[in-house]
Design a protein around this nucleic acid. Structure first.
Lengths: 179, 179
DNA sequence: CGCGACATGTAAGCAGTTACATGATTAT
DNA sequence: ATAATCATGTAACTGCTTACATGTCGCG
């Protein structure tokens, strides 16, 4: 489906940046729903260059360090917008190793389950706390056409997802404790 | 991480079955959190056989059709239980193409967004309806050690996840309509 | 007799991770 | 100086999907 292609085009459509910068974007809030390592980004940039969807210019940083500042082309913009507005069927639900393990958890004694669940709960509470802190940047919802509206959206989605994961864990913990 | 390995061992730990049966399990409720196609299952079974974690006996179905009924070995059970009780860090949040697209949705006019969101909403409502129907099988929570407790757990998790996805979509739709 | 489900495999290719590899810049 | 970060790339491998390939069974 070439999703990474469109993730990169989308970022370059916002503003020109280097491959390294793209990697950093994926470690911010966007990374809650899409990401890639530099080892995947650089080859993809080369491919997009070959396809004429992006171009770059060399920038000198310091004395000699050459970095490639990539920009989206008109052709790239067309391709990106085409992808963005296409209606697609929903994807199969994503894989989740912990829930797979809990599917088989009747093989564990209750004390072990409580330990695993507690460990999981703590980590999700941490992630939620971190997301809520990021959301503090916004004291109101950004306008629909602003650059950081997307950022607000994914933050909100991630917070809802963590909240309900925690609820599921707590339900299971309560049920274990009642036995 | 060899997760498929443990998904298969877990199923065979419940009861002996063929590769085909394993594929069918992945299309039931467990498939909400883990699945694999037959093209991945058969090679993995061969590998588990080589590792001595499972064995099979030939069963004749009808006149001539030979099918392989796989069972878990003692060694396989040990390996599986080891995996099951291990404490693991939570995984990075799963990728989601639609949310990636919505991250960039400030590039779309509001009418197009509402169409995409509505389309997505309908499909998630369908999935939720289907999940709720499956849950009707249970008029109460199965006991913690019963065979179908895991099934109930993943169903419950999937329902919560769909519910909150729908809530997120509806929030966005409302915000669009207010403009 | 024909169709859908049952049953088992392999091959090619795409997506993604980990590791290998190198070097410059900036802040302490 | 030295460590953290900036910056760019390749190689090997794992996981997963799509397509290729074959044949049987049970039902109507």
């Amino acid at each position: 489906m070439r999703t990474l292609k469109y993730a990169i085009l989308g970022l370059l459509n916002k503003e020109s940046m280097t491959g390294y910068d793209i990697g950093k974007e994926f470690s911010k809030d966007l990374g809650e729903f899409w990401n890639a390592k530099h080892s995947q980004i650089y080859p993809e940039l080369k491919k997009l260059l070959d396809e004429g969807l992006i171009v770059y210019e060399i920038q000198i940083s310091g004395e000699v360090l050459e970095k490639k500042l990539y920009s989206i082309t008109e052709k790239g913009k067309q391709d990106f917008l085409q992808w963005l507005k296409k209606e697609e069927p929903i994807e199969p639900t994503p894989k989740d190793v912990f829930r797979l393990r809990m599917y088989f958890s009747n093989n564990l004694d209750v004390a072990t389950r409580l330990q695993l669940l507690g460990h999981q709960l703590l980590q999700h509470q941490d992630r939620l706390k971190h997301l809520r802190k990021n959301k503090e940047r916004y004291n109101s919802i950004p306008p629909l056409d602003s650059d950081n509206f997307g950022d607000y959206l994914v933050l909100d989605g991630a917070i809802l997802r963590e909240t309900v994961t925690i609820q599921w864990l707590e339900n299971y913990i309560d049920y274990c404790k009642k036995q």
